[in-house]
């Protein structure tokens, strides 16, 4: 029996689903690039990162299913919820846009998750600590890979710089949501299971600041950040994503694959 910190099971399941959904949905978006990347090396790197994200999502869904204790499986959770039950942040569900937008989104997510998994290494919950132990190595590669592209594109040509600036502008409203805290994240942080997202902001800003300085980019503050993902309120693109993701499970209910 692994050690599990004392906490309301609903809060634990909710936090696990938020994390799992972030990874599944971003992995889905990234995998859409497969075979369409600007160069062969990226046709390898993007599915590679997507594979890491799907792997992390699986560990998180498996643990959520176990913690929930209602006999659901990782696939039930990943495929058979309704749109309003998905708890991912809005940034990860955004359509890919161009390569600058995709890489900047990957960089932001990795910068946040690196700080998150670092904090979760010491989790009072052994399963969460074990997931963090694996994820922290993978996210370090994602951060380096995406960060290098932010620098190359920011510093590269006039066109790449313009596209990177557009990506910074397009993603700016979705950054704040990463750090959003509520009763669920408070309870989880208090129990020592996972870091308080709000506490990760400094680390995130340091990471982004260093890369942006090298890329010659500036961060943008926005007066109105977008929010709602953690409560299941998504953008219009989400329904289409789920239609594709869930197609087989919805078409052949109960079949085993």
């Amino acid at each position: 029996m692994t050690a599990r910190a004392k906490i309301d099971q609903t809060a634990l399941v909710t936090i696990l689903l938020r994390l799992a959904d972030d990874h599944l949905i971003l992995g889905h978006r990234l995998s859409e690039w497969c075979g369409h990347a600007p160069m062969l090396e990226e046709d390898l790197a993007m599915p590679n990162m997507a594979l890491d994200l799907i792997g992390q999502a699986r560990s998180l869904y498996q643990y959520a299913a176990e913690a929930e204790g209602e006999g659901r499986t990782e696939d039930d959770l990943a495929y058979l919820r309704r749109e309003r039950e998905y708890l991912n942040c809005l940034m990860v569900e955004r359509e890919n846009g161009d390569f600058a937008h995709t890489m900047l989104r990957q960089f932001y997510f990795a910068a946040f998750m690196q700080a998150f998994w670092d904090g979760a290494l010491e989790s009072a919950d052994e399963t969460v600590a074990a997931i963090a132990g694996k994820a922290v190595k993978e996210v370090a590669y994602h951060l380096r890979h995406a960060g290098e592209w932010v620098v190359r594109l920011g510093d590269g040509t006039e066109e790449s710089r313009r596209r990177m600036e557009q990506a910074v502008d397009a993603l700016a409203p979705y950054v704040d949501e990463l750090f959003e805290a509520d009763a669920v994240s408070d309870a989880v942080a208090e129990a020592g299971i996972a870091p308080d997202p709000a506490s990760l902001r400094k680390s995130f800003e340091r990471t982004v600041g260093a890369v942006f300085a090298e890329a010659g980019l500036e961060t943008q503050a926005v007066p109105y950040g977008q929010t709602g993902g953690r409560r299941g309120l998504h953008g219009e693109a989400m329904g289409y994503l789920l239609t594709e993701l869930q197609y087989m499970q919805r078409t052949y209910p109960g079949a085993v694959w």
Partner: peptide
């Protein structure tokens, strides 16, 4: 079929396979 793979296990295996193919190309 990556985005429509019917289970997470199949999705991961397919992603790995397609990535292997890119590697062979390289």
């Amino acid at each position: 079929w990556i985005t429509r793979a019917p289970s997470l296990k199949r999705k991961a295996a397919l992603l790995a396979k397609v990535q292997d193919e890119g590697g062979h190309g390289l």
